[in-house]
């Protein structure tokens, strides 16, 4: 157990704690502009965590997509709606906390059956991954295993994701792509 591993573990827990504080701030603050910026920070902290956890490709995606693109879209939505949230009634808060505490307890109970963090003998590391890590250099010939798996071993999966992006863009065009007609009906803007 060397100093490098201990540092990375401490960093991981510290980043998680910062994410928790950001999450609590998101839940409390009612100025939606601040909430959107905090959610960008939350995503960025997530990206930092992925680097610590060796998932560099994921970190890259999260920083570009989660922290960048979705924050821009949310600010765009704020420009079209309002940036104040009404106060949540106390009864609702209490109910929400009650439900979340129950689910949290259930999840913690379930976690006792899980392998410990970082254990190389965990079942998840025994089956498919060793083949990808061992054989992909001979079969695909690319050093980045994530790219090999993404584009070649699991090409169907990625094709589906590409279609999802396509469908989402078409859906957004259908919903708000056209400027709305002038007060012709209650909503307008459908088709045109």
């Amino acid at each position: 157990m060397n100093i490098e591993i201990i540092t990375s573990d401490l960093l991981e827990v510290a980043t998680l704690v910062i994410m928790g504080i950001t999450g609590l701030a998101i839940a409390r603050i009612r100025n939606l502009f601040a909430v959107v910026m905090l959610s960008g920070i939350y995503s960025l902290m997530g990206a930092t965590l992925y680097v610590i956890l060796d998932a560099v490709d994921v970190a890259f995606t999260e920083a570009a997509v989660g922290a960048g693109a979705s924050t821009v879209l949310m600010i765009g939505t704020l420009a079209l709606t309002s940036d104040r949230e009404l106060a949540t009634p106390n009864a609702r808060t209490v109910k929400g906390i009650f439900v979340c505490t129950l689910i949290f307890a259930a999840l913690v109970y379930g976690s006792f059956d899980m392998p410990l963090y970082g254990d190389p003998l965990a079942p998840v590391h025994q089956h498919v991954a060793p083949r990808y890590l061992g054989e992909s250099m001979g079969e695909i010939g690319l050093p980045n295993v994530v790219t090999s798996v993404l584009a070649s071993y699991r090409g169907y999966d990625t094709m589906g994701e590409t279609f999802v992006i396509f469908t989402a863009a078409v859906g957004v065009i259908t919903l708000i792509g056209r400027a709305r007609r002038k007060k012709s009906g209650k909503d307008g803007g459908s088709g045109s």
């Binding site: 765009g76 079209l80 992006i165 863009a169 957004v172």
Partner: peptide, 24 residues
């Protein structure tokens, strides 16, 4: 394949951004 993914993601983000900005 990666180039195809890149093209779609690029155009998708631009399309979605322009839809929101166009509404504004």
């Amino acid at each position: 394949v990666e180039f195809g993914v890149g093209l779609t993601v690029f155009a998708g983000i631009i399309t979605i951004f322009c839809a929101f900005a166009g509404r504004a």
